[in-house]
Design a protein around this nucleic acid. Structure first.
Length: 803
DNA sequence: AGCACGCCGACT
DNA sequence: GTCGGCGTGCTC
């Protein structure tokens, strides 16, 4: 057993298979599947994942593993199998699947360095001088000195060596701990031998006399003893004290106090909903529950009590929350109930913090993980339940490879562990609700709010009427009246500006010219802060024009109401109102979210103004008014889910009002008040919406009636892109059943990105066993190199974004 | 992905 | 003649 099969960190079609390596004698006992190793690959060193240890290879000339990167496997067998499944279902590379399962800190970084091996013989003077100061320089340093070609000549001559280094991003954080091996008496004696003026050293010894046998961090010690590090160093030198590096976790929640909570008594309705879950837990059987409960109906308490049960059985729980940093309240509730058993994984943490939380899970120091999408891969080995809150959220679908949906992964893992999955939502996705209707999922319903308050009253305002009545403001008369009233009464308001699909573009009011990206077929987005125009797709930047480049008119300005503009407007109309603005600009800094929300909850503002990010999870007692400024902006996007998204957003945001003692009110402003998703969101009638939307989906042959797969082809030459897509589409048609709908080739909604022309083929199918093989052979044929080397093909099975 | 190898056009 | 462009194929 001295050969390891390794998947190397080279994400291409032709390297997406194991390569065999010899395991050097000294590591023969320790190398196991699931460990990362550094291996030579071609002329460089790369990171690799051991998938198998064996004693035979058909390859005659094996190279040896350079170095192990782990002492224990970072991926267990279950996760390795899960990676295989991910590879098959999403058509991604093995490495990509492994990398998706591990914290970003474990992704390798590569560095090229030059080292002088024979300094005297270096021919080029400039190069020799460079290596006089340092024996080793990085590639970048060589480049900066402008000597790359000369250095490369020296490499050929053998005087300089090119080294490929694999570096890990993850650093364990350590703390210096100080202790003593001496007894109290010995310490006193040692202290008496010190010079009389060594008071600082004596004070240090005193600390250990009071706490014999304990270790204390150097920082704390110096503070307690009011001493200095040089005194400490002296004592260590003398052998009186000793130091040790202790590994510590960075704890992002260290500053926060969590008041312990106990389970709340459940309402009848909640008790009825939780009992099938408890039953599944007891019987250790896999079942997927759809917990459909109106906003404020107490879904979280059901999660908490189910987890309680799981922990009592000595098992672990995964809770997924959409972009969790948005809901510090949620984290708070889990931490308060389960204390240090909870690990938190979300995008707001630094790479190091995420790495630490992940290691807590691996070392079994955490039993519950609360996190965003990728937390579904938490390396637990005895999962008792998986919960996905706000199940309908699109952020559970990853839009880069591996293009997985966390819901699918959850069900796959739960099947392995024979445990239940709970999908919770007030506005379930059509897919999930349809499955619940068919009995594939077990439907659990919570119809009543916990406070027995009615759902808030929703008023839909037709903005066209407002315009006709001469009101050109952003606010309808009704919303403005109510806003004024709340500010006077000291109650709080949430204002949602739905800006998706309607980004701020710059247009000339004289000739209609819109500033576009020169490399992509998309209008540039205006950034007020820097007065720049930026392309979201390729990163192109330019200064915003002050006159129209087309006709020279000075009447060129940006369109699309931004939060900033609304804030200005509020300042004019209601100068006494205190406003907190939450959007990408004001929440970019780490922790900004929490700070702004805390200020709002402490009543330091009357109005919380923001984009989608404020729609979810806020639970403040004093909110009695919710205003949606433009409900229909995303209704007109070329996306079959736009009605569903609109309905969900409006329902979710309405749910923010009147969650406690005070009754809430909602005003929805729109230009299409007759649209069913707005009407039914106004009535908070999910069932009706579901029926209505299902008809639309059936007519369009969309999910949940059909599954989708999208093939996206891009090339710098539009003719090549079109003709290849044509070929691919024909090929797909020939291979799939005639019940499957194959659409295309068509130009993508964004026909050009970064000067690459994009065409696509959309497949709608119900049952298509050949699909995966067909798509895979397309990838193999075209995505490899050869005559199609400039072609890029991306396959998305069950896409959420059709761009 | 990188990198070497090999084949063609533009220079000292 | 050679330097360097890019197209092609390989990495245990």
């Amino acid at each position: 057993m001295n050969i390891a099969s390794v998947i190397v960190d080279v994400p291409t079609m032709q390297t997406d298979r194991p390569f065999d390596y010899l395991i050097p004698e000294k590591w023969s006992q320790m190398i196991q599947p699931g460990m990362r190793v550094i291996v030579p690959f071609g002329s460089r060193n790369v990171q690799g994942y051991v998938v198998k240890v064996k004693d035979h290879s058909s390859f005659p000339q094996l190279k040896a593993i350079r170095e192990p990167m782990d002492v224990v496997p970072v991926l267990n067998q279950e996760l390795m199998d899960l990676a295989d499944w991910l590879t098959k279902t999403t058509l991604c590379f093995k490495v990509s699947a492994y990398q998706a399962m591990l914290p970003a800190a474990m992704k390798a970084k590569y560095e090229k360095r030059f080292a002088a091996v024979n300094e005297e013989k270096i021919a080029d003077e400039k190069v020799a001088e460079l290596f006089k100061k340092k024996k080793e320089i990085t590639w970048e340093e060589g480049e900066k000195a402008g000597l790359l070609t000369s250095i490369q000549k020296e490499v050929k001559a053998g005087t300089v060596e090119l080294i490929y280094k694999v570096k890990s991003k993850g650093n364990k954080k350590t703390v210096r701990m100080i202790g003593t091996r001496l007894s109290a008496e010995e310490l006193s004696e040692a202290a008496s031998r010190l010079k009389g003026n060594a008071v600082k050293q004596k004070r240090l010894i005193d600390v250990f006399k009071q706490h014999p046998g304990e270790m204390i961090s150097a920082k704390e010690l110096l503070e307690n003893a009011n001493s200095t590090s040089s005194s400490l160093q002296a004592l260590i030198q003398k052998g009186i004290l000793y130091e040790e590096q202790k590994e510590v976790y960075r704890d992002p929640y260290a500053q926060t106090d969590f008041e312990k909570t106990s389970p709340f008594p459940l309402t009848d309705e909640q008790r009825k909903a939780i009992s099938p879950i408890i039953e599944a837990l007891e019987e250790e059987k896999h079942e997927t529950f759809l917990l459909y409960g109106v906003t404020g109906s107490g879904k979280t308490e059901i999660y908490l009590q189910s987890i309680q049960k799981v922990l009592e059985k000595g098992k672990e729980a995964i809770v997924l929350v959409p972009e969790i940093s948005l809901t510090p309240q949620m984290v708070h509730r889990f931490k308060s109930r389960f204390g240090d058993d909870v690990a938190v994984l979300h995008s707001g943490l630094s790479i190091g913090e995420k790495y630490d939380e992940w290691r807590k899970i691996l070392k079994k120091e955490a039993k519950v993980v609360v996190g965003a999408r990728s937390a579904i891969f938490a390396p637990f080995e005895n999962i008792g339940i998986i919960i996905i809150d706000e199940e309908h959220e699109t952020s559970y679908k990853q839009e880069e490879t591996p293009r997985y949906h966390a819901r699918d992964v959850a069900i796959k893992r739960a099947q392995h562990f024979n445990c239940p999955v709970i999908l919770g939502s007030a506005t379930p996705s059509l897919e999930s609700f349809a499955r619940a209707q068919k009995g594939v999922y077990h439907l659990l319903t919570l119809k009543n709010r916990m406070n027995h308050r009615d759902l808030p009253e929703v008023e839909i305002v037709d903005m066209r009427e407002e315009l006709r009545a001469g009101n050109r403001s952003i606010f309808s008369r009704s919303l403005f009246e109510k806003l004024k009233d709340r500010v006077e009464k000291g109650e709080q308001t949430v204002l949602l500006l739905n800006r998706r699909g309607h980004s701020s573009f710059v247009m000339c009011r004289d000739c209609g010219y819109v500033v576009q990206c020169p490399h992509c077929d998309i209008s540039l987005t205006y950034h007020h802060f820097s007065n720049e125009m930026k392309c979201h797709y390729c990163g192109y930047e330019t200064i915003a024009p002050s006159v129209c480049p087309e006709c020279g008119s000075p009447y060129i300005r940006y369109f699309g109401t931004g939060t900033q503009k609304v804030e200005e407007e509020l300042g004019k109309l209601l100068p006494e109102a205190r406003v907190i603005r939450m959007d990408v600009d004001t929440t970019r800094k780490k922790g900004a979210h929490e700070t702004l929300l805390r200020q709002f909850s402490e009543g330091k503002a009357d109005i919380l103004l923001g984009t989608q990010m404020i729609a979810k999870g806020l639970d403040f007692p004093n909110i009695t008014l919710v205003g949606v400024l433009s409900a229909d902006t995303m209704l007109h996007l070329p996306d079959f889910r736009s009605s569903e998204k609109t309905f969900q957003l409006l329902t979710q945001v309405s749910g923010r009002a009147g969650r406690h003692e005070l009754q809430g009110e909602v005003v929805v402003q729109t230009y299409t008040p007759e649209h069913y998703s707005i009407q039914l969101a106004g009535q908070q009638n999910f069932e009706r919406f579901y029926q209505r939307e299902m008809i639309m989906r059936k007519l369009g042959s969309y999910p949940p009636f059909y599954y989708l797969a999208l093939v996206n082809v891009s090339h710098e030459d539009p003719l090549v892109a079109a003709s290849v897509t044509e070929k691919i589409t024909k090929f797909i048609r020939s291979r799939l059943s005639n019940k499957t709908v194959v659409l295309g080739p068509t130009a993508s909604p964004i026909p050009r990105i970064n000067n690459r022309y994009r065409y696509q083929c959309l497949i709608k199918y119900k049952h298509e066993p050949m699909l995966s093989d067909t798509l895979k052979s397309i990838l193999e044929q075209y995505n490899g190199q050869g005559s199609y080397s400039h072609l890029q093909i991306a396959v998305d099975i069950n896409p959420f974004v059709m761009m």
